[in-house]
Nucleic acid binder design. Structure first.
Length: 273
DNA sequence: GAACCCCTGGTT
DNA sequence: AACCAGGGGTTC
């Protein structure tokens, strides 16, 4: 579900209500989603206070007062909701953190792909450790260099490279399609054919697309809501994603739908080359 | 790299 | 009934 803009929106909506909260109890309802074991997790978390919320790629991180951290990855359908303890548990609730103030943080995930990991900064989980640069918070030269270095070493479509979290963190299926539309480049283009000028254009497009999506509080197609349960608005501003056979908003050509890098992919045959 | 898998639920 | 889905890890 959530890509960088959605996770960032969740972070922003949860920050003010979670900072300073003390964890009173932990309920693990889907054991395979959490690490370490539920018993160890409960022992480590009870009594801890939340001191900061961070985002890294598509991970949301809770920083605790003993320097330990909890990393949530929402995968396709995960939701993080701040709710009164009295609110009945939703179906497919994976984890509940109960606080000392009558509120709780619920991790709800119908498809059960989402994960929760407790760790210390010295030994981050693999997925987090291998992440590429953060597009909005890293200097341009570093991000562009990560893209071009990866491009020199691999084959295949440019879309696959942008989806690779080791190359750049945070882009998923929606925002790669939106980025490549804005950049005027077909998702099927081989990474080897992309020129230096085009990498620059792709980089600029990534910034524009992500910043606008964050302004609109993320894209809600089916499952996504922020930490308060509110949907985003960016679905109203998508340029190509989910517009199969509809007219291109720029030139009127019919938007094409195909499969690239294993994912459903939308592009304009006239605007993108 | 592509293909399959982890799951449930919505759409065709 | 079949296919699709904001992800990504493991296999080929």
């Amino acid at each position: 579900m959530p890509e960088l803009p959605e996770v960032e929106t969740i972070r922003r909506t949860l920050t003010s209500v979670l900072i300073g909260q003390e964890i009173q109890g932990v309920e693990v309802l889907l054991e395979k989603a959490v690490k370490p074991s539920p018993e160890q997790l409960i022992r480590a978390l009870v009594g801890r206070k939340i001191v900061e919320l961070r985002r890294r790629g598509k991970y949301l991180l809770l920083l605790l007062d003993d320097d330990s951290r909890v990393a949530f990855h929402l995968r396709m359908t995960g939701r993080l909701l701040f709710l009164p303890k009295l609110t009945p548990l939703e179906k497919h609730t994976t984890l509940v953190l109960n606080f000392t103030d009558d509120h709780s943080l619920r991790f709800v995930d119908p498809r059960k792909f989402g994960t929760v990991v407790l760790y210390w900064p010295s030994t981050p989980p693999e997925g987090l450790k291998k992440l590429g640069p953060e597009p909005l918070e890293t200097e341009k030269a570093v991000v562009v260099s990560s893209l071009t270095t990866a491009a020199a070493r691999r084959k295949g479509p440019v879309k696959g490279l942008l989806l690779d979290q080791r190359v750049i963190a945070g882009l998923g299926n929606i925002y790669t399609d939106e980025t490549l539309f804005l950049a005027g480049i077909r998702p099927t283009r081989s990474v080897r054919e992309i020129t230096a000028a085009e990498w620059e254009k792709i980089y600029q497009s990534i910034l524009t697309v992500l910043e606008l999506a964050i302004e609109h509080r993320g894209t809600s197609r089916r499952d996504y809501v922020d930490g308060r349960g509110e949907p985003g608005n960016h679905q109203c501003y998508l340029q190509v994603y989910d517009r199969k056979k509809k007219p291109c908003l720029v030139c009127g050509s019919e938007i094409q739908y195909t499969r690239v890098a294993g994912r459903g992919t939308y592009y304009c045959p006239a605007c993108q080359h």
